[in-house]
């Protein structure tokens, strides 16, 4: 009885003193997420139908798949030797890589039937039928997949939409140049609160050559406040070169219109 009482009191003490014990703050890893992807010519869109991979990605998939096929074919004889025939019938590998092995022959299974038991014979025959149907189904799926792969990827009217944009159907991961430029200028623009809530806005034109160098800057519509315009110029002037060559000259008009703060 005494022992039980001691145990109960000890448990209570532990329970209530737990918050008093200082916690060991284990250093947590710091993850930095770069939301600023390098611009690409044809950014991938966020639409589900834009996910169909065209030729470039297809090649990569084939190249990656080849060694897997070798492994599977290398392993197959071992399965035949060590595993019982029941397991070898299961066609899981074929489902995983249907494109690579379109004409794979099903492995042969040796079924031992005891002639003394007619019930067992019936069971084995039923099992064989079931497996045959399964193989047929897999073959059908493979044919459907091959047809889909051969068809062209869908296109929409907005081929330059950035990653995640609803209307885009590009095929490269990344943002478009306009998105990248916007992000870069926002980061470079230092606008003291003094200038906000005054309804100031201005518009500039920026020109980049085919290599991505800034070759032109023009204040198209000044705000009327030279000091506000100077902050804009300082922001724009920090953008000397794009991270990659666009391949053609870019001419962009950029409006600086800070939101009002309460």
């Amino acid at each position: 009885m005494l022992l039980l009482s001691l145990l109960l009191h000890g448990a209570l003490l532990l329970f209530f003193s737990a918050p008093l014990v200082p916690r060991l703050d284990t250093p947590r890893p710091v993850y930095q997420v770069d939301l600023l992807s390098a611009p690409v010519k044809s950014p991938r869109a966020g639409r589900p139908d834009a996910g169909k991979k065209p030729a470039v990605t297809k090649k990569k998939a084939v190249a990656k798949a080849e060694p897997k096929v070798e492994k599977k074919t290398g392993k197959a004889p071992e399965v035949k030797k060590t595993e019982p025939p029941k397991k070898s019938v299961v066609a899981k590998p074929v489902v995983k890589e249907p494109v690579v092995t379109p004409v794979k022959t099903p492995p042969r299974t040796e079924v031992k039937v005891d002639p003394s038991s007619p019930q067992q014979t019936q069971d084995v025959i039923a099992e064989m039928r079931r497996k045959q149907e399964q193989r047929q189904r897999i073959e059908d799926l493979k044919r459907q997949l091959a047809t889909l792969s051969a068809s062209p990827s869908p296109q929409t009217s907005v081929p330059q939409a950035p990653l995640g944009a609803v209307a885009g159907t590009g095929h490269e991961t990344g943002a478009d140049f306009a998105s990248w430029i916007k992000q870069a200028i926002v980061e470079a623009w230092a606008l003291p609160d003094h200038y906000r809530n005054r309804g100031l806005w201005c518009e500039v034109e920026l020109r980049f050559d085919y290599r991505g160098y800034r070759v032109g800057y023009l204040m198209v519509r000044p705000s009327g406040d030279g000091y506000f315009d100077a902050t804009v110029k300082r922001a724009v002037m920090q953008l000397e070169q794009l991270p990659s060559a666009p391949g053609k000259s870019l001419n962009l008009s950029i409006k600086f219109d800070p939101k009002e703060l309460l």
Binding site: A178, I181, K182, I185, V186, E187, A188, W189, A190, L191, P192, D193, E203, T231, A235, L252, S253, I254, K255, F256, D257, P258, K259
Partner: peptide, 16 residues
């Protein structure tokens, strides 16, 4: 017709 890009916020509220 508007601009190609509209910058409606500044990344920094003070000049470095």
């Amino acid at each position: 017709l508007g601009a190609d890009i509209v910058i409606d916020e500044a990344g920094q509220r003070a000049i470095p």
